[in-house]
Design a protein around this nucleic acid. Sequence first.
DNA 1: GATGAATGAGTATTCATTCAT
DNA 2: GATGAATGAATACTCATTCAT
Lengths: 216, 216, 216, 216
Amino acid sequence: MRLENKREVQSSVKDERLIEMRRDQMIKGAVSLFKQKGFHRTTTREIAKASGFSIGTLYEYIRTKEDVLYLVCDRIYDEVRVRLHDMELDGGTLQSLSRGIAHYFKVVDSMQDEVLVMYQEAKSLSKDALPYVLKKELEMTKMFETLIQKCVDEGELVMEQDEIHLLAQNIFVQGQMWAFRRWALRKYNIDQYTDRQTELLLKGVRGYQAAVNKGE
Amino acid sequence: MRLENKREVQSSVKDERLIEMRRDQMIKGAVSLFKQKGFHRTTTREIAKASGFSIGTLYEYIRTKEDVLYLVCDRIYDEVRVRLHDMELDGGTLQSLSRGIAHYFKVVDSMQDEVLVMYQEAKSLSKDALPYVLKKELEMTKMFETLIQKCVDEGELVMEQDEIHLLAQNIFVQGQMWAFRRWALRKYNIDQYTDRQTELLLKGVRGYQAAVNKGE
Amino acid sequence: MRLENKREVQSSVKDERLIEMRRDQMIKGAVSLFKQKGFHRTTTREIAKASGFSIGTLYEYIRTKEDVLYLVCDRIYDEVRVRLHDMELDGGTLQSLSRGIAHYFKVVDSMQDEVLVMYQEAKSLSKDALPYVLKKELEMTKMFETLIQKCVDEGELVMEQDEIHLLAQNIFVQGQMWAFRRWALRKYNIDQYTDRQTELLLKGVRGYQAAVNKGE
Amino acid sequence: MRLENKREVQSSVKDERLIEMRRDQMIKGAVSLFKQKGFHRTTTREIAKASGFSIGTLYEYIRTKEDVLYLVCDRIYDEVRVRLHDMELDGGTLQSLSRGIAHYFKVVDSMQDEVLVMYQEAKSLSKDALPYVLKKELEMTKMFETLIQKCVDEGELVMEQDEIHLLAQNIFVQGQMWAFRRWALRKYNIDQYTDRQTELLLKGVRGYQAAVNKGE
DNA sequence: GATGAATGAGTATTCATTCAT
DNA sequence: GATGAATGAATACTCATTCAT
């Protein structure tokens, strides 16, 4: 079973540019509401109002309330991914890896609300829509795997396949953690958080210390 | 603002033993339902039915639906905490630290459903009840901090305060991660997961390598 | 595929006597509303109000609005049938046949509203419920067929099978006609209507004239 | 209160030929939809689509959804009436009467869908539009009355006024019956149905037997 | 004349909570 | 203490109708 990259959300409006525009408004409004009260406690009328149009218009661009959630999740992932594209995936040095991490953390930091929402509400997606979102998450962890793999290929790191996979997961989760555990991380700002986590993440990998020393 | 350890959930029934018993049934039923459909999609009628009594009786032991969620979260934390009490907090060796981690991961593994539920639904608690739950989480991360601190005191590890705190957070989150990212961790069993994570967590801390070497 | 005699309409209330009672109220209220505005223009809230209870309570006794329609149709047929049971099916004389017709017309006359409603709204039943209602209609036309057949068996009438069937249908429809074409039949009262129709229905059947003459 | 023959349905379009054309499309589309799902379950959007133009255009030719129903009913009656004009109203023989009936039944048979729709949905017309439709029905039953009256005048039949009226009603209803009770009449084709019904309708009227004998 | 996006009143249905028995 | 019938506020979604382009 192949999975298309997008799940179409049906709209009874034809004009593609209009759809784009209205959905932009919708997503913006919905994120702010979902953040405050969560998906279930937010009503479709509130979404419509926050989006700047009527309930009838809202339903011209979606089919069900869940579609809004899907659009929100979809959009957030897309944006995160686009922003991550600046990352130099072909570095192969520990420096480029830690720059990648820092970059990712920065993106999460600047999209805290969105990440938090997606993180907490994605599970409310139906069995139908969930795979599309998970697929995007997979792509993101893959990026970190690639980054790490490059370092291994270049001999900068020594790690087994299993460890690479897990390290990538850890990086990804620690990024999200910055959004969903803010209450426990108040003592750090994003730079401190990034530094500390990078240390903890990489200090242990064989070769890191050498690299640091060299840099000194 | 001091926070009592328990938030009383009012019951119109007096018999404490009865309350205990009914709530046990209730929590068991609720966890299974929340796991399947989430808190919001579960109705009080379903909870009553799954608990083996009537909707009227359910409301003899709680005041609102949210009370059920609170009781569930509360219970799960208590259980995790109780189970963690076997942990030797006074070790002060890297070995006792990694034993602690392994122990915690094992507990999470054996309570996957519960941890998952609490993890995903705790955010639905009202501003009123949330602090009580967060407090318990705090206590748990404190345990890891203590464990790490002991190692530092014993000279087994060299870490600053900030790093200790963050490492404890990471350990805690990586435990939960075993429950909430199972879909991405299918390639490991709990032992492999524990080994790999412990390596990644500790390999980097100064002193670990030495300890491993010593052990060889 | 056999058809049970009743399609169960689910109720979340257990007490059978209560169900009976509430549905009585409901049907009474619904018939009067459906008569005024038709099924589609009647809201469930109006039904609840006319039944003397709240919208919530209404839904304790049915699952969907269509259930109300089904209950109404079902009840009306049952009542008509019960009332027709006084008919002497074993007569076998033209007199008993015309008495049967008169009896049926009288029943229709006394249940005009109900018959009209059922007549006009039954088509709104889902493909699921319709067969149950049609089955009851079939039973009623069968009664007339039996009545006629008896006369044929006794030599009072000479008719082929096809004609018997059609005559029964005509009697049945002419009964309903009294309800659904009142606007065109204002010039008759029920007795006149009955007399005229009986004449038209039976004058033609071989043997009728003889019978009438005998009676003179 | 005199009743004009047509109730004007307002249109914001001026070109009469265009109006005619568009309404043709509209009626054709609507009949097919009403037949499938009934008037209330059909949306104006569906009607527009089935008619081959946009919702906006639909509303250029009507004022309300009910107008569509009125146009449909109106059109069907007109068509039935036009087709009945071939009927020789001036016959005055039983033969011409039964030919009239056969002709009418044939028309109903060829317009089954339309007759069924009108039959089931006309009641949804507002108090405002209904009289116009009933008036047309009246005209049709009048035709049968005329037909019968002629026979009486010619001495072919002996009937009182009341009976004539009722017989005309019966003929009319039995024609419709062929459309709305098809499910119960599957055993006949239209010719058999016509023959049987004509027999039942006329056998009884004084003079019929003689006529039949004469014809032998 | 034609289009289709926008509107919002209206509707069926759900569900937490209460309370008489 | 236990039950479950009653309640009605709340909510997702629809659809006839309008009107700017």
